[in-house]
Nucleic acid binder design. Structure first.
Lengths: 339, 339
DNA sequence: GCCCTAGGTGTTAGCGCTAACAGTTAGAAA
DNA sequence: TTTCTAACTGTTAGCGCTAACACCTAGGGC
């Protein structure tokens, strides 16, 4: 490292010297300590302005043991769901005066999540949010550093850590019931990939409703959340157009793929086949036809998870683990019709 | 702050004691300093394992003056473009051994961006990436803290800072030329909101091609990037279906809105009107019809911006400001046809 | 034997801040 | 008056780490 030519940035001592007080008094002003004379305070403030002083939060964190930074471990923040969740987290954290340090995993497995948590711990974060949509990722929460406040989002867990998630099972119930209520004999399902907790929850809800209604449970198609995989599933379903009259698709992107495949094959939606999606991405309302779907309030999930995490951090002790569930919402549009 | 019941995490001195060396030797091992005997190194490593020691990067940052953290200021990371860019930034940063601290602004204005930069500076980031798609945000880069390495993404700037962006003008040229080449008399444009640099660049490229070809430049419709605004524009254009034969839409989401409006009004795409979008979001390929569009490589933009920023940081001095341009790519699909 | 060098290690100081405590003053209470 | 208290401010220590330097040893050249 070569010597830096420009003057070093001002530190507290510089402000103190200029204001004619001790550095401790400057610290008190900065931290809104009550016992500072008004006149002294303004003198210090003036000195701060004059020097363009900014306090060094790194030094502060070293002594207070609090960095006011939260770590977020997520997966493919390009997707609407994770992106919205992380956005909600970031907003809520900043409103509470915390920074957010993000690690986006390319592949999500226990080792990767563990590494990420380790890095964040070294960095001195006060707590960690893990967006853990897969079983393997969720398991990494078992070996959190001792005493590290944490919360799982969209994860599954048994008591080791608090979890905030949308009620996937209930969402699937809403979707499936809607289709049965319209008079369909049964409902097919295009699921998300195995190992994903959301996919599992949606399968569970779908199956539960069919079983409770005494309907046959058709074979299930599996996609990978992408429109392309929905397109492939759509081609298969179109070939069975006579038998299939209603499909619950595990997310809106795949539903778009189905719609495209059906259009190509001349299958009319909703006249011949009704479709319900999941997520309510901003595009869904403008699909042709507009997609009936289940809305997930990702922003609420993000905010709730920060609530839970901050309560843990600020209490300074291990709180009992909560399981917070955000309700999904049914959104009726044009892709479903009575049989 | 109440007393913490559990033992404090081990520090370097604890490792040193257990390994029977000085803390400095532990530091040397951790930093891969060459002059450490192999036997000593393994002894230290063993002690580290045994205690589960993790070094405190906050303390390290205080003395080295480098936090190995980069700040990112962005806007609405729910949208595909910003989300993908931020993802690319995060990946590239982590590959280079840096953390990423993110601030997502709700509204993007000079004051907001300035505040965000200020927070990040206090936090001790080594450099800042500002995703500054609006003129007002880009201007905030004029008052960066002295000596803070920074790079603007999708921004516009005159020499104060390096900029990495996709060539919007060229993308618009590609779109417009394609439509003229297909034999359309002229091309209409649904633009992004005013003050957005991307919107301006796309207007510029569109207009330039029309003017160069001696074609009339039709009145322009303006949206806000949302599918809904595209839908509204589509309704207007459908009413003029005889005159309008080709539309260049400033992003794919609005193009989807147009498609929906045209479907409702019975306007056939591409038979009656051809449409070209911009972005190539994952959904575009599965619109009906699949959307001809201009692909932006957001990942590349993110990676390049980190390249530029790290070069600045690691050189330790003010490098000349660069203007890096990532080429857009034309993607032919089914929403355009010859006149 | 001497010196010199290089490898390996320990000692000390200090990064910029806050916490804890130690004054100092002024005014109220005794 | 004295004494106490509260309000305000300064002094000191130390968070956990790295940089700089000091110090040992062993081995080679003379």
């Amino acid at each position: 490292m070569r010597p830096n030519v420009e003057r070093r940035p001002p530190v507290m001592a510089d402000v103190a010297r200029l204001a004619g007080v001790s550095h401790q008094t400057v610290s008190r002003v900065l931290n809104d300590h009550p016992n500072v004379r008004a006149e002294t305070r303004t003198r210090v403030m003036r000195a701060i302005d004059q020097l363009g002083y900014r306090r060094n939060l790194v030094a502060r964190a070293l002594v207070t043991k609090h960095s006011r930074t939260l770590g977020v471990v997520s997966f493919d923040t390009t997707l609407y769901g994770p992106a919205s969740t992380v956005y909600g987290i970031e907003q809520a954290a900043r409103d509470a005066g915390y920074f957010v340090s993000i690690v986006s995993l390319r592949t999500i497995d226990r080792a990767g999540v563990n590494d990420a948590i380790g890095y964040l711990a070294e960095q001195g974060v006060d707590g960690i949010v893990v967006v853990a949509p897969q079983r393997s990722a969720a398991r990494a929460l078992d070996d959190l550093p001792a005493g590290m406040p944490a919360v799982a989002v969209e994860g599954w867990h048994q008591g080791e850590v608090s979890v905030v998630s949308v009620d996937q099972v209930e969402g699937a119930r809403l979707a499936t019931s809607h289709l049965l209520d319209l008079g369909h004999e049964t409902v097919w399902h295009v699921s998300g990939p195995a190992d994903w907790l959301e996919a599992e929850g949606r399968i569970e809800g779908w199956r539960a409703v069919l079983t409770a209604a005494g309907r046959p449970v058709p074979g299930m198609l599996t996609g990978d959340w992408s429109p392309r995989s929905g397109y492939r599933a759509g081609k298969e379903l179109a070939a069975m157009a006579g038998d299939v009259t209603a499909v619950f698709v595990a997310n809106d992107q795949m539903a778009l793929g189905l719609l495209r495949a059906f259009t190509e094959e001349g299958v009319k939606v909703p006249e011949q086949i009704s479709i319900v999606g999941f997520d309510d991405i901003p595009e869904s309302e403008f699909f042709s036809p507009p997609l009936t779907t289940i809305r997930q309030d990702f922003g609420a999930v993000g905010r709730r998870s920060i609530d839970v995490l901050l309560r843990q951090i600020e209490s300074g002790e291990a709180l009992p683990h909560e399981r917070l569930v955000v309700p999904p919402q049914f959104v009726l549009r044009g892709s479903t019709a009575a049989r």
